[in-house]
Amino acid sequence: MDRLEDLLKHAEGDAPAPVERWNPPYCGDIGLEILRDGSWHYQGSPIRRPAMVKLFARVLRRDADGRTYLVTPAEKIDIAVADAPFIAVEMQVQGEGQTQSLVFRTNVDDVVQCGPEHPLRFAVDGAGGAFKPYVHVRGRLEALISRAVVYDLVALAWPGPDKGPTGIWSGGAFFPLPV
């Protein structure tokens, strides 16, 4: 069995904190930010302890207003996010074509199986027309798919249903690439 598949099975029993149900008072901005490369910083200095970053990631929430917070039962703190809070750094492919399934691991070790519950989204970046793919992780949180993984992802493109636009199949769902 592959490593990501093992992680996915382990993650099924390791639910994230129920941050969507918590409604603590807002406590302000203390200088936390996630840069475009996925690194976490506190008041301009990188947080170098992976265990601390993973702990913070477990209590991360993006609200309907588009702002991202660290949330505990007692407090809600602003966190600036340059792009996406997570980076998909690894992908495992099972099957091919319409029956394929993609499993992604993020830089904070969230593991998700792409499909209807964890869809892919493609955003067009800038005037050059390049696209950036994202995979839904949980709540309103997504992972930007790293450049190295994007190349592997694009290699999996297939024609869409009824010979429609080219895209990616995973978990029985089709995600068209931007034209």
Rank of each mutant, 00 (worst) to 15 (best):
M1K: 11
R3Y: 15
R3E: 15
L4M: 12
E5V: 14
L7D: 13
L8T: 08
K9Y: 14
H10K: 15
A11D: 14
G13Y: 00
A15W: 08
P16S: 06
P16V: 07
P18L: 14
V19P: 00
E20H: 11
E20G: 09
R21Y: 10
W22D: 10
N23F: 12
P24L: 10
P25W: 12
P25D: 10
G28E: 05
E33D: 13
E33N: 10
E33Q: 13
E33H: 04
G38K: 12
S39V: 05
W40G: 02
H41E: 14
Q43V: 07
S45K: 15
P46I: 11
I47M: 12
I47W: 02
R48P: 00
A51S: 15
M52F: 12
M52C: 13
K54Y: 01
K54Q: 11
L55M: 12
L60F: 11
R67G: 01
T68G: 09
L70R: 07
V71R: 03
T72E: 00
I77T: 13
I77M: 11
I79F: 10
A80Q: 15
F86P: 01
I87R: 04
A88N: 05
V89W: 03
E90Q: 08
V93G: 01
Q94V: 09
Q94T: 09
E96Q: 14
T99G: 06
Q100W: 02
L102A: 01
N107R: 05
D109F: 03
V111T: 15
Q113T: 01
P119N: 07
L120E: 05
R121Y: 11
R121K: 08
F122I: 12
A127T: 14
A127E: 15
G129W: 09
G129Q: 11
A130P: 02
A130I: 09
P133C: 00
P133K: 03
R138K: 11
G139Q: 10
R140M: 15
E142F: 08
L144Y: 03
R147Y: 08
V150F: 07
Y151M: 07
P159M: 11
G160W: 06
T166L: 07
G167M: 00
W169Y: 15
W169D: 05
S170P: 00
S170A: 00
S170I: 03
A173P: 03
F175A: 05
